[in-house]
Design a protein around this nucleic acid. Structure first.
Lengths: 194, 194
DNA sequence: GGCCCTAGTGAGTGTATAGTCACTCACATG
DNA sequence: CATGTGAGTGACTATACACTCACTAGGGCC
């Protein structure tokens, strides 16, 4: 089916570009709420060609999700490397900082939220499971933290997702103060927080 | 506009029934993925009548969400009343148990997940914010727990949502064991866990 | 020039969907 | 019976969407 080449073929490059477009566009509209035409427009190709590169809408969504989790694991790896000491708590903390920086543009975050909602499609559910499994396993083995610490790491990550979708970091009310305390995040225009 | 009656008018009763249907049906398909016809079929009325009861699809979704948060606050109240001691940690723990029992049927849980994903619609974003604000404020004031404890309570609730959408409680792998440890939940067929 | 292979598309198909509107029908009241 | 009111619907519109297919264009190779 595929001819072997040393470098990426043009079609492969297109696939990559379409996946990148899919990440941003699906992140805005979600799975059911985003037509393939929107992805095609963003990638500046015809909708018909999208279907030549990917057999179905769901397979494109899954490809976008997989790229999302790849970038997350990369970010965690980078964070771990930047930890001040190899103590598990330090490594995990540094991973958190990298993750906060990664999701500054919100696309990777929102794609995860939409994927969680789209688990009605078995292919998507499976992809999310694989992604979470990878992230959890990696955080666990790379930091050598206890299971409880890793669980808390993921739990607060989920809280961060919720707070970001709600724009709670800018809300000046007691409930928002309670929930956002100590949660690292970057403002869209840069500028770090706690 | 509305004639005053001692009991609910038939139309009001219909509204209630439609909202109940909306909760279950939107919980399965999400906002963008669920047509009004599906809600109408579930409520056994014509789609046209749904639009006479609710001005738009989004307003019906918001009504369903609001009912969802009402039931959550009720459950937390019940849990607080059932706490063994008035110690904040005990009250919060008991609230958690009630919440775990409430979302046994998954509809209320999945509706929240879908709502979080549908925050692209401002009305929905606002409704979720109101709901989370109510839940957080209530948990905080009723339990008199510290802000940190309340934050953790919500964070682990979010983790529970993720694990439930992934069906992670039935997965026999290390990552699943790490993430599900100590998270209370009920199997669809009843039978409590940890 | 002629051949071929692959990137890429225009134009469609069948179906679904939010929302509308003119209408019917049940029933309560005088 | 006559009449009015509000519950409920059939049939429609305009649009959008997932997916298909027959086709063209461009560039390497003889």
């Amino acid at each position: 089916m595929a001819r072997e080449r040393v470098s990426l073929s043009t079609a492969e490059a297109r696939r990559e570009a379409v996946v990148a477009s899919a990440v941003t566009v699906f992140a805005r509209g979600g799975y059911a709420g985003t037509p393939i035409t929107a992805v095609a427009e963003h990638a500046r190709i015809s909708p018909a060609y999208v279907f030549k590169l990917f057999p179905s809408k769901v397979s494109l969504f899954v490809a976008a999700l997989e790229r999302c989790y790849e970038r997350i694991v990369d970010a965690l790896e980078g964070g771990a490397a930047r930890a001040e000491t190899p103590a598990p708590a330090d490594v995990l903390h540094s991973m958190g900082a990298s993750y906060a920086a990664l999701i500054a543009d919100r696309d990777l975050l929102m794609l995860q939220v939409h994927a969680q909602a789209a688990t009605g499609a078995p292919e998507i559910a499976e992809a999310v499971r694989r992604g979470i499994a990878r992230v959890t396993s990696f955080a666990s083995s790379r930091s050598r933290a206890s299971a409880d610490e890793v669980q808390q790491f993921i739990a607060y990550g989920q809280l961060c997702h919720l707070l970001t979708t709600l724009d709670a970091f800018g809300v000046d009310e007691p409930w928002a103060a309670t929930l956002t305390a100590g949660i690292r995040h970057h403002w869209p225009e840069g500028g770090e927080q706690t």
